[in-house]
Nucleic acid binder design. Structure first.
Lengths: 164, 164
DNA sequence: TGTCTTCCTGCGAACGCCTTGCAGCAACGT
DNA sequence: ACGTTGCTGCAAGGCGTTCGCAGGAAGACA
């Protein structure tokens, strides 16, 4: 039961850099592939394969979901892309090294929050001290109860992204 | 995108206690339901619905997977059962209050470890301090690199978030 | 520029996990 | 013992994802 593809990160800053990295690995730059990469850069956060397909569709009608998945797969294999599971829905794919975030979801109101990895460094230290594990919350989120829901054991629907 | 069913825990110690709780909620005790409960008590950790069906099958041939899922669902709705996702495979269902554990999986070797919740209290404190979230690792595990794999991380692959 | 190789594509089908609709059986209150 | 109706097995479906295939196109080479 694989959890994460265990691949060294290969952060890229621009579309061209990403395409160059692909080419350098002996891969071809098809229209679909280029547009998937561009969709990843255009997004401001991780998106589902279906969302990416929809974004590509505008410029390459008939582009197939399977191709999107295959491209995300190869990009992930190269370390340029990672995916996160924020719940029971589809996986969300995003570029590595583009404002890395770690994820939290509230068990009450389902709100998802993201924080910069550094914010959780103390938690990581505590986990390392307790278990020896070097933890990351970029594939599975921290599940818990957000402060708002904890305060008034209530039902919020804030979709906000929390403090950096 | 639901993450966890947000239901108060209803821990039960014995099969009879579980069945009594079911009856007290106006549910009937069918053969399949009783055997699902017994399978949960017989197991020494969370199991997949398919494993539970297989266990039930021996005593109730023809028992359907859908019924197992429905029963797990009602048990979870009552707070007697929770499920955990340890990776990309099926969810694993276990009794609440039967030696509660929290989960860790290694991104390198895929090994899963469990710890008593108290072990992670310091980490929980750090997460609360940093984000306001009251974290639990009973639905999604902590993903990281176990100490063994971290030891010989020199050769081979490296996980996304470097921490030099 | 053209030719050749083979990677990548769209299509369709299938997968794994889970849910749902349905008709009939059986658990429980009376 | 009887009537309700909750629960069942069965079959089909949904969702997210993968696979097999034949054809098309990207890129190396001439």
């Amino acid at each position: 039961m694989t959890v994460t593809r265990n691949v060294p990160a290969l952060p890229v800053e621009t579309v061209d850099e990403a395409l160059a990295a692909l080419r350098a690995s002996g891969m071809r730059i098809s229209g679909a592939r280029r547009l998937v990469v561009e969709a990843l850069f255009a997004a401001d956060g991780p998106q589902s394969a279906e969302e990416i397909r929809a974004a590509v569709e505008g410029r390459l009608p008939g582009c197939d979901l399977a191709s999107v998945y295959r491209n995300l797969d190869t990009l992930e294999e190269l370390g340029m892309v990672r995916h996160v599971h924020l719940g029971h829905g589809p996986g969300l794919y995003g570029l590595v090294g583009h404002g890395e975030r770690e994820y939290l979801v509230c068990a009450d109101c389902q709100a998802t929050a993201t924080v910069a990895p550094a914010v959780l460094d103390a938690a990581r230290d505590a986990i390392r001290a307790a278990t020896g594990y070097e933890a990351s919350f970029q594939h599975f989120p921290i599940v818990g109860r957000c402060s708002a829901c904890a305060a008034h054991a209530g039902h919020g629907r804030e979709d906000g992204h929390a403090h950096p």
